[in-house]
Design a protein around this nucleic acid. Sequence first.
DNA 1: CTCGTTATGTTATTTTATAACATTTCAATC
DNA 2: GATTGAAATGTTATAAAATAACATAACGAG
Lengths: 177, 177
Amino acid sequence: MAHTPPIPEGSEVFEAAGHDHDHCVDHALQAAETICTREGARLTPLRRQVLELVWRSHEPIGAYDVLARLQREGASDAEDGRPAAPPTVYRALDFLLKYGLVHRIESLNAYVGCAHPQEDHNGQFLICRTCGTAAEIEDDAISAAIRDNAKRIGFAVDRVTVEVSGLCPRCRSDAHA
Amino acid sequence: MAHTPPIPEGSEVFEAAGHDHDHCVDHALQAAETICTREGARLTPLRRQVLELVWRSHEPIGAYDVLARLQREGASDAEDGRPAAPPTVYRALDFLLKYGLVHRIESLNAYVGCAHPQEDHNGQFLICRTCGTAAEIEDDAISAAIRDNAKRIGFAVDRVTVEVSGLCPRCRSDAHA
DNA sequence: CTCGTTATGTTATTTTATAACATTTCAATC
DNA sequence: GATTGAAATGTTATAAAATAACATAACGAG
């Protein structure tokens, strides 16, 4: 353990637009394999495919959008008749949530690949209302402030949701133009 | 039943169980009148009734629960035939959200009366998974930490959602018993 | 192989939210 | 006090998000 994750400086967290996304999808899938192996969890073809679809989207994607894409691709390896149904996707997403491979964005009813799947955390998000991108940050000051409050009040924290919506740097510049 | 546990410091925010709730509903309605007058907004009987229903619940309440109670009470002063329909409630809730009289809890798809309606803020919530109570806090350290991050990244903040779920002091004590 | 467990398929329904259009209410102006 | 345009509410229908309940298949330990 104890290897410090690279902390994105400034607007690098919103680098989405121009980067090699295939690479980062592959990386995420690789990481997922590793984690599931370690946890004794089964990253089945279906779950893997759902994870890939979530990552490919790169912005938060709704369960029914995942479903639609799953249907287009033909579920998993099965090239049979019927299209996949909602529970298929929800179950896969629940699995991925459980192992911290995706996060759910409550304010959007949508899911996004977790940027730091090795750590146990809930994610903090900056969500651009224009381009839809959600940047995951993990700031100790925010976590600490929340933890301090909970402690003061005697509240036992289970899960923390931090979602900030607004305008990302790029869309902000565009708006000025 | 367990005996009354020692109440930890700071648990006033979770005072819900024992207090004079009628009083605090009245107070909230009074404050709402004041704010709407100041803002030139119309707190119609329907909107007032919805606000009252949200407050009466004292824990976050779903739109359809509000609707059901509205129907039971007979919508507003109209004692006519048909029961109210969903848009009626959603529109009233939208109005109340707009003027900061209620907050929406994203992680519950539910609404709760705002504890500090005069100030412009988004609310930060500690939500007990056992008793369902949502305590609204307003902590500058949390706000500041989020603001700092946004600034560093160049993100223009619009709306901040902070929802912490877990166990409130009371339920925590009960769980130990 | 066999048997219990886990995963997925399938059908139906529930819950949450909004679109679209009709009618009513309100209050400002004539 | 009638006219009228805007705001609020009524009404009908449907969209979008999530889950319940039960059936079948795959998987892996013994």
